Simulated scan of single mutants.
Amino acid sequence: MTEEVSVPESHPRYESLLTRHRIEAGVERGITSKQGLIAEGRGEAFDYLLGEETTDSADRAARAAAAYLLSAEHAVVSVNGNAAALVPEELVELADVTGAELEVNLFNRTRERIEAIADYLREHGAEGVKGLDADARIPGLDHERAKVDSDGIYDADVVLVPLEDGDRAEALGEMGKTELVVDLNPLSRSPQVATVPIVDNIIRAIPTITEHARELAGDPAAQQAAIETFDADAALADAKRRIREVEA
C-alpha cells in the first residue's frame, strides 16, 4: 500500500506523510477503521513533541521488550488495523525473529476486517495468523477487544500490544500477563500499566525491537540483564520531560 507515495525521501516530512498515506490506504482496503485516522493524528502530535526520533529511553524499552519476547514461554503480538496498515512486514519479521505469534484483535470488529487483516499479514509473509476463532474472552471487558483466541492471547504469558486500548491493557495485566506497549502518549493508560512502555512511533519501535532481538537471541544472560535494568517509571518520566522541554 506504499507504492503510490510520490514524496521523495529527502522531504523533511517524508516519514509523517508516508504514515498518513498508509493509514488512508488501510481505510480504503478495509483494514483500518475511520476512527484509526483520528488515532493516527493524535499519535503524530505526540511524535512531533518527542522530536520524531527514538529516544535513548525508548531504545532501552525496545531492548527490554525484545528480551521478554525471546524469554517467553508463549509470546503473542496483538495486531489492530493501524498496526497492520503501518508495519505489516515489520510485524511479520519481529514474529519470525522472536518466535512470537500474530493475533488480530479489534475494537471495531467484523469478520470481514479480521479476515482482511489476516490476509494482508499473510501477503507479507505471515503464517498461522490467529484471531479468527475468538473462542475465549478477556475477563472484565464488555467490548469486542475482549474476544481472543484461547490458544493465542488468552494463553500467552507475554503480549506485545502496540496502539492499545487502555482498558484492555489493564485487563491483560490483571490476568498476570507481561505487557509490552507501544504508545506515543506517555500519559495514556496503556503505557502507564505496561511492564514495558515503549514511547515511540510504531514504525520505528517495531524494527528497533527486532534489531535488539537479533542481538539478544541465544544469550539468556543478556536477555535477563536487559529486563532487570529496565525501569518503566523512569522511561515514562523521561518521555514526559522530553515533551515539556520541547522547543517552540
Rank of each mutant, 00 (worst) to 15 (best):
G43V: 07
V77M: 01
L49M: 12
Y14V: 05
G36M: 10
P12A: 09
R20S: 13
E15P: 03
T32S: 11
G43Y: 02
E15M: 12
S71Y: 02
A75H: 01
I38M: 14
H11V: 07
I38S: 13
V76W: 00
G36D: 09
S57G: 04
A64Q: 00
L17G: 03
A65S: 12
A72P: 03
Y48E: 11
A25M: 08
A67E: 01
V77K: 00
H21S: 14
T55D: 06
Y68D: 08
H74I: 00
F46S: 02
E15S: 15
R42W: 12
R42M: 14
R60W: 01
I31E: 00
R63G: 09
T32W: 04
G30N: 02
D56M: 09
R63W: 03
V76C: 05
A39W: 06
K34T: 15
A45E: 12
Y48G: 09
Y14A: 06
H21M: 12
P12E: 06
R13L: 15
P12I: 05
L49C: 11
E15A: 15
I31L: 14
A61T: 10
L17R: 01
L49P: 03
A58Y: 01
S71C: 07
I31V: 10
A25E: 09
A72G: 06
E73Q: 14
E24Q: 10
G41K: 10
E73R: 15
D59W: 11
T54Y: 02
L50S: 06
I31H: 00
E28S: 12
S16F: 13
R29K: 15
S57A: 14
E53D: 13
V27S: 02
L18K: 14
E15C: 04
G51N: 03
E53P: 06
G30I: 00
V27L: 07
D59H: 10
H74N: 12
Y68K: 08
E73M: 08
I23H: 11
T55P: 03
V77W: 00
E40D: 10
E24S: 11
E73Y: 08
T55E: 02
F46N: 01
D56W: 08
E28A: 14
I38P: 05
E44T: 13
R22V: 00
Q35H: 14
A66D: 00
E44D: 14
E15D: 14
S33N: 08
A67G: 05
R42V: 14
L69A: 09
L17C: 04
Y68S: 10
A61Q: 05
A67L: 05
G30S: 02
E44S: 15
G43E: 07
A25T: 05
S16E: 15
I31F: 00
A72M: 06
Y14W: 12
R22G: 02
D47R: 12
T55Q: 12
L17M: 13
A67D: 04
S78G: 15
E53F: 07
R42S: 12
L50Y: 00
G36Y: 04
T54H: 05
S16G: 09
G43T: 07
R63P: 03
R63I: 03
E40L: 08
E44N: 13
G51S: 03
A72T: 06
L17S: 07
L50M: 13
S33D: 13
A64F: 01
A65C: 08
S10C: 06
E52K: 11
A62Q: 04
G51L: 03
L70F: 07
P12F: 11
V27C: 10
T19F: 11
S57D: 09
L69P: 04
G30W: 00
T32H: 05
S16Y: 11
